[in-house]
Every structure is written in C-alpha cells, then in structure tokens.
Write a protein that binds this DNA or RNA. Sequence first.
DNA 1: CCAAAAGTGTTCTGCGTACACCCATGG
DNA 2: CCATGGGTGTACGCAGAACACTTTTGG
Lengths: 243, 243
Amino acid sequence: MKNKDTYIEVGQIDPLEIMDKFGLLCTVDCVIFGYNQESLNVLTIECTTKPYVDKLSLLGDVLYREETTNEAAKRILRERAGLQNIYMEDVGVFSDIDRHPLSRVITVGYYSLVQIEDFAIVDAQNRHLTWIDVATIEEMAYDHKKILDSALIKLKKTIRQQPIGFKLLPEKFTLNQLQSFYEVVLGIKFDKRNFRRKLKSLDVLTDLGEIQDEVSHRPAKLYSFDSTAYEKRKANGGVNFTV
Amino acid sequence: MKNKDTYIEVGQIDPLEIMDKFGLLCTVDCVIFGYNQESLNVLTIECTTKPYVDKLSLLGDVLYREETTNEAAKRILRERAGLQNIYMEDVGVFSDIDRHPLSRVITVGYYSLVQIEDFAIVDAQNRHLTWIDVATIEEMAYDHKKILDSALIKLKKTIRQQPIGFKLLPEKFTLNQLQSFYEVVLGIKFDKRNFRRKLKSLDVLTDLGEIQDEVSHRPAKLYSFDSTAYEKRKANGGVNFTV
DNA sequence: CCAAAAGTGTTCTGCGTACACCCATGG
DNA sequence: CCATGGGTGTACGCAGAACACTTTTGG
C-alpha cells in the first residue's frame, strides 16, 4: 500500500491553520415540488448574484454552525416558504469547484412535496417567488438545474416504492386524482382498472363513504390515506408501489 | 409567507465575514468493503484523535479547496489504500453538530468494493490498518458506525439492482462462489437452482470452458463477467438483479 | 467406495398487463 | 336525452419460489 508523507488528518494540526487552508461554506438548497392537478411544479426565486441575476434559483441558505443540514432544510422551508412538517428527502452533495462564483461553496440538496392549493405564496421579499412547471425549465442559476434533475430522478424512484404520492393530494381524493398524479410525475399512463386493483390491494386507502359534489357528471367516491395501515405494512416487510 | 429580516444569502455580504461566521470543514470518509469468500469486511484504521484514540475509524481526509468530494474520495483510495479505478458510490452527508470533537466538521461518505486477495495491506504509517468483519463491529470513532451502517444499507439495495457483485470476486469464479457472495452480503440464503437459472438468464456470464483444479471433489465450471453484455443490457432498459 | 461439492427440471402461484362496456349525475 | 367522467372483470404470460436426486472428482 502506498503512503504519503504529506498526509493531513483533521485534528492533527492547529484548528486555525486548517480552517484557513480548508475551510469552506456549505449551503442547503431545497427543491420544493408542488402539484396542482395538472402539472408538477417547483418553487423558484429570482437570483440576485452575478452572473446569474434574474435566473431561476432554488430556495437555499448557508448552513449555520449550530444546525445539521436537515435542520437547515427545515429552517429554509419554514422561514422562507412558511412550510412546516412536510415530507423532505436528501438528494445528495453537489461540490463542483466553480459552482458558486464568489467562493468555494458546496451544497446539500433536499426535496419536498406540497399541494399548491394548500400554500398561498406571499412574496414578502419581492423576490418573485414563483411556481414553474418542471417540464418547461431549461436553465437555472448555479448548478440548480442539476440539483433539480437529481431531485426529480429520486422523486420518481421513491414514488414507486413508497406512497408519498398522498402528500401531494388533498386529504380527500378520488382514485382518478391519485392516478393522474402518478401519471404527471412519472410521465407515463396507467390502465385505470389495473391501477385501481393495485392500489386497493395495498390496503392503505380508506373509503370515506362520501362522494364529490358540484361536478356535472357522476360523482366519484372519496378516499383518504390510512397511514397507520401503511406503517403496519411497512413494518411487515415494505410496500411495493409499482403501478 | 413569512419573511425574515436577518435573512442572509451567500454572496450578498462580505465573503470574509461570511467565512468567519459560517465557514466549516468538510471531510470525505470511505467505507472500503472487502470480501474474502467468507465474510464481508471493512478496512479500518486506529483513530488518533481524542476522545476516540484506538477506536476503529474509516479512511478519510479533509476535502481540499480544489477538488470535488468525488475527487477527494478517489484521492483517499489511491493515496491511502493504493486502490485505483474501483467501484465507488456516494452514501450521503453526515452533519451532526458534535460529530467531530475539535471543530464543526461535516463529512460525505463513500463506499467501495474490493476483493481482499487483490489488495495487500502495507501499513506504512503503522496505523494498524485492518480488515474487520462488518458483522462483528459494534463501535467506531466519531459517527463512523453510522456511516458504515448507511453504506451497508445502500450496498444491499444496490447489489440487488446492479451486478456489482462481480467486483468483489476473482476474475474467474464459480457459480457457487457468486451465490455465496450474495448470501454473505445480504445475509440470506438462496435456492441453488433458482439462483443459477436467474443468473444465466441475465446473459452477463461467460462460460470460460475451464474448471477448478486442486479441489478434492468434483471441480466447478469457471465463469467470468461479460461487461459489454451487461452494458448493452443496461442500455436496453436496465437489469433486475433480484435473486 | 466414501466424502464433498457440482450440477440439473418441473410444478405452482401471484402479479403485471391487455382489453371494452355500463353507470350516475348535471344540464 | 346527452355529455362527461366514474366505475367494473377476465384471460394470458412471465417470473419467483419450492422442492430432491444424480454426477464427478480426490482420497
């Protein structure tokens, strides 16, 4: 095995010296997906840093010394989008050397899921906070497009294995709404009968015994997600959500 | 939406000031898995930092300013274990506030796979570099046990979807060796006939027309991994490696 | 000829997939 | 009564899972 005399390990040299040499900034960027019964969107803000002024950017902030990246992501969601207790998953580290124009900044990506209707945007900072259909986004500030793409890949993978889809629907929903959610996010069509059989066989839906009203056609039954049944199922060996 | 007057964005205030306030260290830690036909092991080193002196630690180093975390992981594998061009996958960020005793240090985990026979340990630093059976590890320095556990979970998941198992076997191997590798890593037993049928149906094995010698029983046929066939297969919609 | 590991086929079951028509409501 | 979306059942094919005996070699 090779050795290296210049080998440095954190803690073996003066902390001040090492910070001076290797200290860097870490940020957290949040991909906030919003679904509106038609399209999958992402919450964006206009960037104010050269050379990306006016380009679309994700909501992000620097990681504080006294918080984990998870806590930072929660803080960003809460302070900058008014979102609390929502689904959140790690997308990974992005550490390209020149990803930030002003200094060495690595970032940790997270993604979340919300229903757009539940979430009234108040653009207090006048920063042009906007939902953009992910299908139309071609370019973003920094490497945020790359983060978005990774988040989308992870969302698609996860959605097939866990019923997180319910997080993007109203509490009471119809089976067609559920199906159309999967179709929009995954970009594929499902057979109605097969979709329903599969979902019902999972035993995580509660038939509320209610129906839609104010629709000019046969009203659909309303369902809700039975999270205790799901947790039980998960404990007994997992959910296979392939549809 | 809530606003926050104290909101800070990287690039909007003096870079020196922000480094002073939010600068931190980032390290990369490598979980190097080694398989020896019997058990799954991980390469460890004795830690020299209080309060973890003599505890087991992963190979890691601080992230340099001019490299990505991927590059740092490659450097660690090369300089400290003599490993080059080996399989490597990201495990994620570990950012607990007190995970390092001397300062705020976040780390990015990676894992790799090697065959122990191919890799002669030269412990030039006299740091007690050792292969340890992962099944016997209960405690490690820092949060390295947590990183190891995450790496193991990811390895198990990945091994079922991609034929990375071949990276942990000699170039020529028998089907029983391959099966036993899967059994050791996943901790479950497979039916011999089903395993063989499944593997052969994947079309990624080359029958070398050779057999074992110097065994005191019927010699087994030797196979190698046909990586071009695998790449073709992957391109045409992926491999399902469930066994 | 014995020990030890190599090698081999069939059946059953469950799941994904393809496919077409009637139903309930509002206007 | 018509337009609109809601709702239902059957048949086929593939893949995973269960299961036991014969073969080849060295000692």
